[in-house]
């Protein structure tokens, strides 16, 4: 770790101001950023903790019925308090271990956009809205490839709004070492159609599986996936699985998610 300044503002406005300094960086739960700093792979001059901002904490229901989660809300809080959206609560409950869930935040996870992370699948699969200090970004516009998002420098995720579906489920097939998703599939059925978002598989990060969505929108049953497949050519190929294996898992996990959706 290199030395850095530390700020813990209590309002979004102060956080934005603090992040105005050159090489300042937001700190959520630190579950990704702190290990990066320990390995000296990043050298921010200042860390601005978002954990002291009460307006970024907690779970509530918006006027339109969407579940609204403060950007600095921990995975453990979502697991415990997002009962209105059980698939989302269960997704949060299966991220990492208790220490990670007690520290890690939804804003940090979405800002980081790890290609194997769980929340990106939930957000894209739910057609969530990413609310920042300056604008609202639709999930479909937000995720732009591995570790890449629509966020500008210094922009803070203050809230994430999840429309609550009729039925949904997240199936996570874990990578044996990290227990991130080797492949994770989030399926959500809304009145106007089904969304299927897949994490862990693609070299381009989280993505929607259009064919599966079309098939499931017509017939929301596991059989609807029969015969559908994704190509493994552009999928992640590493120690834990080839692209072809991941492509195969995408279909298996999609079916299981549909079968388990509630």
């Amino acid at each position: 770790m290199y030395n850095f300044e530390f700020a813990k503002p209590s309002s979004v406005a102060d956080a934005v101001a603090a992040l105005g300094d050159e090489d300042a960086q937001a700190l959520g739960g630190g579950q990704t950023l702190i290990p990066t700093l320990k390995q000296r792979l990043a050298s921010p001059t200042k860390l601005v903790s978002l954990k002291g901002i009460s307006e970024m904490q907690g779970v509530c229901t918006g006027d339109d019925g969407a579940l609204c989660i403060g950007g600095a809300t921990s995975h453990a809080t979502v697991a415990a308090e997002a009962g209105a959206y059980p698939a989302l609560a269960s997704t949060a409950a299966h991220i990492g271990d208790p220490a990670v869930r007690n520290r890690g935040t939804i804003g940090g996870s979405l800002a980081n956009n790890d290609p194997s992370a769980c929340y990106p699948a939930a957000a894209l699969g739910s057609g969530a809205t990413i609310v920042t200090n300056s604008r609202e970004i639709a999930a479909d516009d937000y995720f732009q490839g591995m570790f890449t998002t629509a966020l500008d420098e210094g922009e803070i995720i203050t809230e994430v709004r999840f429309p609550v579906p009729e039925a949904a489920n997240y199936q996570k097939f874990v990578q044996p070492a990290s227990r991130f998703a080797l492949v994770g599939v989030f399926v959500a059925k809304y009145a106007d159609g089904v969304r299927v978002a897949i994490t862990g598989a693609s070299n381009d990060g989280v993505f929607r599986w259009a064919e599966a969505e079309a098939a499931l929108s017509a017939n929301f049953s596991a059989n609807a996936i029969d015969g559908l497949s994704l190509s493994g050519d552009d999928m992640i190929n590493d120690l834990h699985g080839t692209g072809a294996y991941r492509a195969h898992l995408c279909a298996v996990m999609t079916k299981r998610a549909v079968a388990a959706a509630s």
Partner: peptide, 11 residues
């Protein structure tokens, strides 16, 4: 070394 941390080395 590809499995140089617990992210890739499964205990």
């Amino acid at each position: 070394l590809l499995s140089a941390s617990y992210m890739d080395y499964a205990m």
